[in-house]
């Protein structure tokens, strides 16, 4: 792959927790299937970075190349400023998608193995494991064999083993998979607390609401390349539009407001709509004069689902026209 073809993120900094340049993976020789064509991303230290994409976009393959599970066809991979070899991976924790461990081992044995493989003494793991298990919602389950664990519990022990060595970087592949809503909330809180403690989190997820809730930056992959990247706010804020939420007894908004508003949603007597930034003052005054209570005035923001769908539709259109 030539240098000119390599896509390099604009936000690339000197100090990155994870840096991938021009990653490519082709199965079956030069004419084979390209799972990843050109992926570059930079994850800043102490942030939560989302890796998004539809099925087959290349998310898991990219993560596997970073972690040495798949041999890259091309690309450079760095973790904490060092080439992503076994040595630096001692400072990294990984939760694979749908983790599975030997059902004949207990949760504590899984944690002990994970600790030994990361160079953590058994005594330290034994001391740390009760708190860690409690942290992931498995308090008192350390001596239970994993054969008796549910799908969600396996997910939780997977997270615990990723964190047992207090890693500086955590890579989570679909961490909320198999968890109930309470479990998903726990995982979100866990990721936020990790980031607050300075741990870098690279999150690969299909759950856009989860990504939107916790990520500082996202990279969106599609068909093995980077389709979009940036901060959540930059990607989702709709330029030139402001969202207004108002409550009133009237069945309709003032006429001058109606002529300006778009993307209207009504629930009971609460109205949410967008107006051009230039009209915000006039609309607020009109609502105020009409006796409406204004609950919020914020920059218009699309949901990640909307953004994602639009992005993929645009890519499909470009391919058709090409």
């Amino acid at each position: 792959m030539s240098t000119a073809e390599v896509h390099v993120p604009a936000a690339e900094g000197a100090h990155a927790a994870i840096r991938i340049r021009g990653a490519a993976k082709r199965y079956g020789g030069p004419r084979g299937f390209a799972a990843v064509s050109d992926v570059s991303l930079v994850v800043a230290p102490g942030t939560i970075h989302g890796l998004l994409g539809p099925n087959g976009a290349g998310k898991t393959t990219t993560l596997k190349m970073l972690l040495g599970l798949v041999r890259p066809t091309a690309g450079e991979f760095e973790i904490l400023g060092e080439p992503a070899g076994p040595a630096v991976r001692a400072r990294l924790g990984f939760l694979p998608e749908q983790p599975y461990f030997s059902p004949l081992l207990t949760a504590l044995e899984v944690l002990l193995l994970a600790g030994r493989l990361s160079g953590v003494p058994d005594a330290a793991v034994r001391e740390r494991s009760p708190g860690l298990l409690a942290h992931v919602g498995l308090e008192g389950r350390g001596n239970t064999r994993l054969a008796k664990y549910s799908r969600g519990m396996l997910q939780r022990i997977g997270i615990a083993q990723a964190l047992v060595a207090a890693p500086e970087v955590v890579v989570l592949d679909e961490p909320a998979s198999g968890l109930d809503p309470v479990g998903q909330r726990d995982i979100r809180n866990l990721m936020l607390s990790l980031a607050a403690e300075g741990t870098t989190v690279l999150l690969s997820s299909h759950q856009l609401s989860e990504v939107e809730a916790v990520c500082d930056e996202v990279t969106i992959l599609n068909r093995g390349t980077v389709a979009a990247e940036g901060s959540i706010d930059d990607l989702l804020n709709v330029a030139g539009r402001t969202s207004i939420r108002a409550r009133g007894a009237a069945t309709a908004l003032p006429a001058d407001v109606q002529s300006l508003m778009e993307d209207v949603a009504v629930s009971g007597n609460v109205w949410v709509f967008a107006v051009p930034d230039s009209a915000v003052r006039a609309v607020v005054d009109s609502l105020d004069d009409g006796g409406w209570a204004i609950e919020s005035v914020v920059p218009k923001r699309s949901s990640l689902e909307e953004y994602f769908a639009t992005l993929l539709d645009d890519e499909a259109l470009r391919e058709v026209s090409a």
Binding site: A90, P96, L113, G119
Partner: peptide, 14 residues
């Protein structure tokens, strides 16, 4: 096949 190898080889293990 069961991916139990992933958490092992993603560490400081050759």
């Amino acid at each position: 096949e069961r991916r139990t190898v992933y958490p092992v080889l993603a560490r400081d293990v050759s």
